Computed example of a mutant assay.
Amino acid sequence: MTETDERRRPTIRDVAAAAGVSRGTVSRVINGGHWVSPDAREAVEEAIRRTGYTANHAARSLATGRADSVAFLLTESQHLLFSDPTFALLLRGATEALAQRSMTLVLLIADTAAERANVEHYVRAGHVDGVLLISSHESDPLLASLIAAGVPTVCSGVPLGDRAHVPTVSVDEEESARVMTRYLIDRGYRKIAIITGPNDTPGGRHRLEGFQEVMGDRFDPDLVEQDSYDAEAGAAAMTKLLERAPDIDAVFAASDVMAVGAIAAARRMGRRVPDDLAVAGFDDSGLAATHDPPLTTMRQPWAQISSSMVEMILDVIAGRPREAVVLPTTLVARESA
């Protein structure tokens, strides 16, 4: 770009003149709109469109020490990003919420030790202002490392272990599982099995605890399978359950993706859903409503989870204290159970 081109690029001064406001007002609108009247904001935004002004983000980052971006950090195998629609829902919601604030979402995946090391280096170098940790495992040292480095971090779900000081947005995992288990019992099912996630994840552990509490004396550890949150794991778990206990009449799968795999395996073994075997899921991520048969499931408020996480991380970045947010789930009854 020539020096002449650089001089012709619209500046804050040009925007201020076009909007009839001060340069300070334009700067406040560009940096979040604090202490600006609605009329002034509208005038500035219209002037930005007319002049074609674009902010020099590199210069602003040097001046403010901010990257104007937040990481969406998934500590799972990258294939789950495409096979499990829950991650896509959270990613879309967080992207939209940040875009409204002129900020960028950066997708990071840290499944292997090498990936975790790269992510940790990237984040600690200041390329993002904060981290939305979308999944956590009790044995994973990455969260503790982020906290020790002072990286603003918000978790989706309450991480296991001594992490009470980490801001979180979650649903009540145990109560959600209790609600679904009571529903299956009230429908007349008596020999109920559960397929749940890994025991070192919040959902895997707490959904099993809620199920076990409601089952009480009827709880049978032989009717429990724990594995990763994917369809193949759900199918393998259902196969093992039916081989051990062919007379089970209902299965609570702790994710819709696992439920879909479980139903496929049940059909291969000659079981009809729901005629011979009821199957319920968890999430209501869109997959449940379109499956054949449509899944009975626990609906998580995905849009509210992602928007709450964005609001929380921005507060944490700004140094404002935040309390944990626990959002309600809803039982959605469909044909599978």
Rank of each mutant, 00 (worst) to 15 (best):
A125Q: 15
A125T: 12
I134N: 09
D140L: 09
F87S: 02
T86C: 14
L74S: 01
A125V: 08
T75S: 08
G130W: 08
D129E: 06
P198I: 02
I134D: 10
R178F: 03
I147G: 03
Y122Q: 13
E213K: 12
H121Q: 15
L91K: 02
R190F: 00
S77Y: 12
L208D: 00
G161R: 05
A164G: 11
P167Q: 12
P159Q: 02
E209P: 01
D84F: 09
T95I: 10
R182E: 14
V151M: 07
P202H: 03
T153R: 06
L89H: 04
V166K: 00
D186K: 06
L90I: 09
D162Q: 13
P85D: 05
Y183V: 03
C155F: 03
E209T: 13
H206I: 12
V214Y: 04
L89R: 11
D84H: 14
Y122V: 08
V131H: 05
P198T: 07
L184Y: 04
H137A: 13
G130R: 04
T153Q: 07
Y183E: 13
R182M: 06
S170G: 09
H127R: 15
S102D: 14
P141K: 04
L81A: 10
D172T: 05
H79G: 07
I109C: 14
L142V: 11
R116I: 11
I134V: 15
R101S: 09
R101M: 11
L208R: 01
D129I: 10
P159N: 02
A149Y: 12
M215H: 00
R187V: 06
V179H: 02
V123W: 12
K191W: 02
L80P: 01
D84V: 08
A177K: 04
R207F: 10
L91W: 13
L142D: 05
M103N: 08
E173H: 13
V106S: 08
C155I: 00
V151N: 05
H127S: 14
L208P: 01
P159T: 07
S83H: 05
E209I: 13
L90W: 11
P159H: 03
L98N: 01
V119L: 07
G150Y: 01
L132D: 00
T196V: 06
L146T: 02
H79P: 03
V128N: 06
V123S: 04
H127G: 09
A94L: 07
R101I: 10
V154T: 00
I147Y: 05
R163I: 08
R163N: 14
I147V: 15
I192K: 01
T95E: 15
E209C: 11
P141L: 08
E115H: 09
E96P: 04
D186N: 11
G216F: 04
T112I: 09
H165P: 12
L132K: 00
